[in-house]
């Protein structure tokens, strides 16, 4: 039968439509998309309603702290095991009381006990085939120097992994989507308010429900950053310092002082890497060379005794190492020579 609404409420009396808004799948998607193109006059309200339906969420999602959660779970698991011991103890007590029973009685009792043991053995044997006991393997992905990688996570979130970085995550996510990052990556997270997405990197962790953001956390760096492109992000240090950041804001973690700061950021300088843009804003030469060596997989050789003073500002889009170095030669007094995998720096 053709669905031909004349009033808005006709949509609402159509359970198929309501079900699609709440739980769409690709078949119903196709149906309603084609319905929509055939009924262009209803399109505006159609889109509005769907947007609202998807955007309205419970305001708070209070979570136990990682410590509380672990402590709570440990106690419960401990209780689960100590109760078993208690039951064994009371079994032993019962057994000792039976010592005073007649021989016939004790034979009967031991048969009963054997039967119990069998039941327990069969029970525990059965349990080992339980689907719950499947161990979820961890997946490790690395992008070596000179290479960037695009990765699709089990929840369909996308990650672009920068050169010289490593990401670890379970093959299937549990209640929390936890990934571990060494280095730098850009995350585009599928929205799922019930399963927070958490990036653990060094001493900071970043929690989101569904947004896109960049995390830079190379072990050797003094300053890490988390920069938000869309949505809301929570950054928290191991010491419990935390801050919420929103689009155009970035949070910087200073390792030596273990402090977090927050400010607006330059998109290209922090996230340009994923669009092949290499941008430096008054960066020290040490930073510049570190960046180049990871980006192009080269080793920068600075002759002993050479002091690199000042800073460098420049922007390169999709350039070869030669061009980047040529550009740097223009604005600095330095000279560069490329020898296989080495860049040798000299002053004229």
């Amino acid at each position: 039968m053709e669905f031909n609404p004349t009033r808005t409420s006709d949509f609402l009396e159509n359970p198929f439509f309501v079900k699609w808004v709440k739980h769409p799948n690709r078949h119903t998607d196709r149906y309603w998309e084609s319905w929509n193109t055939k009924n262009p006059e209803k399109q505006a309200i159609f889109l509005e309603a769907i947007q609202i339906a998807k955007g309205l969420q419970p305001k708070e999602s209070n979570q136990l702290s990682a410590d509380q959660y672990q402590l709570g779970l440990d106690r419960i698991i401990a209780a689960n095991n100590s109760i078993d011991k208690d039951q064994e103890r009371s079994k032993k007590q019962r057994k000792s009381q039976r010592r005073f029973l007649t021989l016939g009685g004790s034979i009967a009792a031991s048969i009963v006990l054997m039967g119990m043991a069998m039941v327990i053995w069969v029970g525990s044997h059965k349990e080992s085939n339980d689907p719950v006991l499947v161990e979820i393997p961890m997946v490790v992905k690395t992008a070596p120097k000179g290479v960037k990688k695009s990765i699709l996570l089990p929840d369909s979130s996308r990650v672009i992994l920068n050169s010289g970085s490593e990401i670890t995550y379970p093959a299937v996510f549990g209640d929390q989507r936890v990934v571990h990052l060494k280095g730098q990556a850009f995350f585009d997270v599928e929205r799922d308010t019930l399963h927070p997405f958490i990036v653990k990197s060094g001493e900071i962790q970043t929690s989101v429900l569904g947004t896109s953001f960049d995390v830079k956390a190379y072990d050797e760096l003094e300053v890490f950053h988390v920069a938000v492109v869309t949505g809301k992000v929570n950054v928290r240090t191991d010491d419990g310092i935390e801050t919420n950041i929103t689009p155009t804001e970035a949070s910087f973690y200073h390792k030596s002082s273990k402090s977090l700061s927050k400010q607006h950021y330059d998109y290209e300088a922090l996230i340009g890497w994923k669009d092949k843009i290499l941008k430096f804003n008054r960066a020290t030469y040490h930073e510049v060379f570190r960046e180049l060596s990871i980006w192009y997989d080269v080793h920068v050789v600075i002759p002993e005794g050479m002091i690199l003073k000042g800073d460098f500002t420049g922007r390169f889009e999709n350039q070869s190492l030669e061009n980047v170095l040529k550009g740097m030669e223009y604005t600095t007094k330095m000279h560069f020579e490329i020898k296989e995998r080495e860049v040798i720096v000299s002053l004229p």
Partner: peptide
């Protein structure tokens, strides 16, 4: 090294 750059560009494409 220039070849290496091409590899980089190639690798950043999200379908790869």
């Amino acid at each position: 090294v220039t070849n290496k750059c091409v590899v980089i560009n190639h690798d950043t494409s999200p379908v790869n």
